[in-house]
Design a protein around this nucleic acid. Structure first.
Lengths: 337, 337
DNA sequence: TTGTAAGCGTTATCAC
DNA sequence: GTGATAACGCTTACAA
């Protein structure tokens, strides 16, 4: 027998389809005896209620989507892992999408998701500079959205971020205290909210330290590793900084490569600090001082916020903005010489 | 207006639902004019065909599942990223599940998926030592499965792995050539096919070098980092190896920690080689010699195999076994002293 | 080219 | 406690 459905089961047991159905949902009245009979037969025939029929009836998919700019990266993969676990604990399934930081992909994915495929979405945004009107569609369809780490400030939904300004301020201060006077700020896209917040922390900490801020010490790097290495190499050559503050992990890696190649000694000649979720930062050469975001926790919190909305009887969009703290973990790369 | 469906659209346009439906699928006959009228109105009303109704009719979900033991790990996250991209390129959606290496979770997930939720599954197995009969359910429901990296040898489905035996043989030989005579093999679960293959390569390479194989030089470590560090510390203390061969990345990390703590110098006192997908292996202290699996490629190939099956008119289960090559990348951690 | 109507496999509402 | 029946929103013969 190929397709076992509720009808076949009903016929085999001389019962009605409604009774069968009842055996599978918790609530309804049904005698223990028949229920067991049904469940036994179901097991025998390998019957499982058709998911899409149920979804159609119930207008629920028990599925959420996670949209991330990147995955081959500790921060995002830890976060996704956390989200998936919470989702599963809540009986939900998790669809995964990776945008590769491409705004068009993000728009396409959201479009694909607004047909009811998912009950809710957790997203780390890719297209801050662009128009966000397309998200209105989700609101219309009452699909809740939770932003994760990279947010659109102009969109009013729940958000989970870290205290980028504060941690950046403290990281800069940490470099100053380690003796740095010429600190370059390495960033990939300073117009993103995250870049902006982190840069502001840097700027204000310099001010506090009485070091004049110079715009050309904000170094626009690239998503491409080789390109970033080139840029940083040039910076080391010309600006001769004594401190590098990498706004994202991959720029710390690029900095290490550039320094290794040039024979510039960390931390003797230049100190390095970076946002990073690398577990093995302590094992780098030299061990890297990091500002570590609680990636997994951010993920689980984002999922919790989403399920709070989904579970609410009155699905008023939750608009909490949760800010978790990042920790600076001091290691050799910023050691005072 | 809240719910726009095909009926409302039909009424608004004075057309039948079938005509509307036709406007949305490529094939059917429909005049260009009405099609455009429909599409325009659909856009205006923000209509999108209900996914679950279509799936129910067509008995297709255009969704695949990816089941991995872990995600916060470069190897798997790169692979998942590759899979997701190929899936999306093929118009498919990707459900993600993380088992945390828990066999029971794996069984539960497969169970959840055999109701037609997905058209196919890519899985890296978690429970080799256990019974695999539960996978029969998938076969019955004609849901194709592709194994990725960690396979069950007794299950006949398509597989993508790397040449574990060969690369392990070469890695061991590499240590021997670097002067090692007392090589410990660090493994998490030597009964897994991967552990077995890698161990066999180690054993045979020792034999080739005329070094007698001793079972107690195969060190069973743990998934828990601290525990592994303890175990390796003890090994360094008692067995005093001059070479460590880590069968998985996290054991290389644990080895580094253990050596750092004991003050054992790499590579002078002990050389280390490991399977690893860490991008920053070159930046470790000292840079780590790795056997690197083509994680992304493995993912995309697994996805291709799956879609080859899904696209086949006659859905005969493809049973190809694809073996990709790993590369040994030599760095400081195995340098000859 | 378009409309009619049956059905995909469930579940909810009523009866009994 | 159980059964008949009408949806859910869509697709597809078949008819017009």
């Amino acid at each position: 027998m190929d397709d076992v459905n509720i009808k076949k089961l009903a016929k085999d047991l001389n019962l009605s389809t409604s009774t069968i159905s009842r055996a599978f949902r918790g609530n309804s009245d049904i005698s223990q005896a028949t229920k067991e009979r049904i469940l036994a037969k179901a097991k025998e025939l390998n019957y499982q209620p058709n998911l899409y029929a149920s979804n159609l009836r119930e207008k629920k998919s028990k599925t959420i989507a996670v949209i991330m700019p990147e995955l081959a990266n500790n921060f995002f993969s830890q976060a996704v892992k956390g989200i998936e676990r919470v989702a599963r604990d809540n009986g939900y399934h998790t669809l995964l999408y990776v945008t590769d930081d491409d705004y068009q992909k993000e728009v396409g994915i959201i479009d694909d998701l607004s047909n009811g495929r998912v009950d809710g979405i957790i997203m780390s945004a890719s297209g801050e500079a662009n128009d966000h009107a397309y998200l209105g569609k989700l609101k219309k369809k009452k699909i809740p959205l939770v932003f994760f780490d990279r947010v659109y400030d102009d969109v009013d939904v729940a958000k989970v971020t870290t205290d980028d300004y504060t941690s950046s301020f403290e990281a800069t201060r940490h470099l100053v205290e380690a003796g740095c006077k010429k600190i370059a700020f390495l960033v990939i896209n300073k117009s993103l909210s995250i870049g902006k917040m982190r840069m502001q922390g840097y700027v204000d900490a310099l001010k506090e330290a009485g070091i004049p801020f110079q715009p050309d010490w904000v170094i626009d790097c690239s998503n491409d590793r080789e390109e970033s290495i080139d840029i940083i190499t040039k910076v080391l050559d010309t600006l001769r900084p004594d401190g590098l503050f990498a706004a994202v992990e991959r720029l710390a890696m690029a900095s290490y490569y550039a320094c290794h190649q040039l024979g510039v000694k960390i931390p003797e000649q230049v100190k390095v600090i970076s946002y990073s979720s690398l577990e093995i930062a302590p094992l780098l050469n030299p061990s890297l001082t990091t500002i570590t975001q609680p990636a997994g926790d951010m993920g689980t919190e984002a999922a919790r916020l989403l399920f709070k909305t989904l579970d609410a009887a009155e699905p008023a969009q939750v608009q909490d903005h949760l800010v978790l703290h990042s920790r600076i973990i001091q290691r050799r790369s910023t050691e005072k010489s």
